[in-house]
Simulated scan of single mutants.
Amino acid sequence: MDLHALREDMVAFSKEIGIDKIGVASPDVFTELKERLRAQQELGYQSGFEKGSLDERTTPNMHVPEAKSIISIAIAYPSKMKDAPRSKRGERRGLFCRASWGQDYHDVLNDKLNRLAEFLEEKYPGFRWRSMVDTGELSDRAVAERAGIGFTGKNTNLITKEFGSYVYLGEIITNIPFAPDDPVDDSCGDCNICVDACPTGALVQGNQLHAGKCIAFLTQTKGFLPDEYRDKIGNRIYGCDTCQTVCPKNKKKDFHLHPELEPDPELVKPELKPLLSISNREFKEKYGKMAGSWRGKKPIQRNAIIALAHYKDDTAVEELIRVMKEDPRPVIRGTAAWALGKIGVPSSYDVILHAKEKETDEEVLLEMDKGLAFFTNATV
């Protein structure tokens, strides 16, 4: 079989179905990545969302034993929103990061990878394959880097020449022996803007991320947010884009190539107060098609409460009192009590004090004490 011709046909078909970049990587073990991942584990820098063992995350033929190549794809997404609603008193808004704009990118990329695989299946007898997008064992970024799609910047994002780092990545491990592409050179140079701009210091140095400090990770956790990060997340209710928006490689990078990835301004920059009373069904119907909904409504609601405290939105006090008194989830009750203290409306002091008399959860009681402390500290 003429593999060169097959590859040309594959590239042409990829453009037809809306794949913006495509490259090929060898299926060799990602030896250097394995050592970096081992170091991340030893330092305690992992998020806990990682899938698979070190071997599974770095050995492609564990997933396709006949693997001869890995096809890497990239899809560009927008960096700017048209007609974004303004946040104003009484109608304060939160923000989903750009990776959650439009339809869930997992679904979008998996559809394109499946169509690409079907195309190859018709062309190559005995085709074997497995695709991955984000939640698979392999590192999409490491595969894309090896396939020449782009280079890994100091912000740990893959940066492409055409689209900056505003790309989604996925891959197909296959038994087709395509020749690999050449990697591109790292071109961050002496630039350290992203490391310096990270709100929590999660970029401990160029190319090394402490995931546990990263706002993108923290907004997805379900427990109480550690105190030291509450003032850092601002109005972010899912994800963080700071290390991308400050990157010089992303200057003037804004592509609107895929209608399914266009943001609905009211969804990606939603009013905060209505989120506190949204039902599970309403949340699923409204936000279920977004990538940022994957952890359910609880983290979003907790982050919305923290955002209201960030704004010191006194119009939210009545709703926060209701949440503190009535919500069955300790994390939400406790965060609401903390937020009431942070906002600082004087009448909230007695309300928290009375609610504390009926509260039995130790963690909620601790948050109530934190809320009360805002008032006592203010009078010292």
Rank of each mutant, 00 (worst) to 15 (best):
Y311C: 10
V317E: 02
T135R: 05
L95P: 02
E171D: 01
R7G: 15
A309C: 12
L158V: 12
A307M: 10
N377I: 05
E285Q: 15
C97H: 03
S139C: 03
I306Q: 02
L3W: 02
G288E: 04
L320N: 00
T174K: 01
T156E: 00
P274C: 06
V143F: 00
V268K: 06
P248C: 05
R86Y: 03
I321T: 07
E282Y: 02
G223Y: 04
K34S: 05
H256Y: 09
N377S: 09
L372M: 15
K123Q: 13
P125G: 10
G201D: 06
D369Y: 02
K298W: 13
K213D: 12
M368W: 01
P199F: 02
T219F: 11
R89M: 01
F375M: 12
S348L: 03
K342A: 03
I305C: 06
Q103C: 05
T315P: 04
K222N: 12
L203N: 01
N110Q: 08
N303I: 07
I159M: 04
G296S: 12
I215Y: 05
W294G: 12
L169F: 02
K88G: 09
E56M: 15
L261S: 04
T376E: 15
F375V: 11
A76T: 14
K273N: 13
P259M: 10
G18R: 09
E118K: 04
